[in-house]
Amino acid sequence: MSESPPEQLTDETELLFRQVNPVFVRDGRVGSQAFRPTPKDQRMLSVARASRTTAEAAFQHHTGCLKLSSAGTWAVTVGECSQLGLPARPDEVTEQPCPDPAHAVVPPYLYKTETISVSRTGCVRPSSPATVGRPASTCRTWWTTSWSARTRS
């Protein structure tokens, strides 16, 4: 990861793409582990900004250039993260051989109960006390798996 610029992402509707390791997809349901930073991430959740890339390009970058595993691209919005008190910020990677102008990070969880979980229907939704008054029915039902399924078949 490069030096982190201080600014936060402000477009609350912007999608943040997350590559999901195949072990975190079980019977079509994505587990909450997929949205937890790994030790390698330095406890920052790596995502890609939809304003700078596409779901498919993010997948190709992850599996092609970085040679990492992914079952497909899922997403949360900047707004969903900020509701949890997790301000996403740009973190452009300029180093070769895999520069990534779309790279962004979501900071470490502030509290143990703040997590982002993904329902079995593929709907990405935050689950936290910070979502007070926000019915589950309003969660987003946005998918990027259709294209990744095609590339796998």
Binding site: V23, F24, R26, D27, R29, G31, S32, Q33, T38, P39, S117, S119, R120, S127, A136
Partner: peptide, 23 residues
């Protein structure tokens, strides 16, 4: 439940309910 590994070697079971996420 849907069962997943965790990086630190635990086994995690998850249930999604209409208004709850249980693990």
């Amino acid at each position: 439940p849907h069962i997943y590994p965790t990086p630190d070697g635990s086994v995690r079971a998850e249930w999604s309910r209409p208004r709850w996420e249980i693990s």
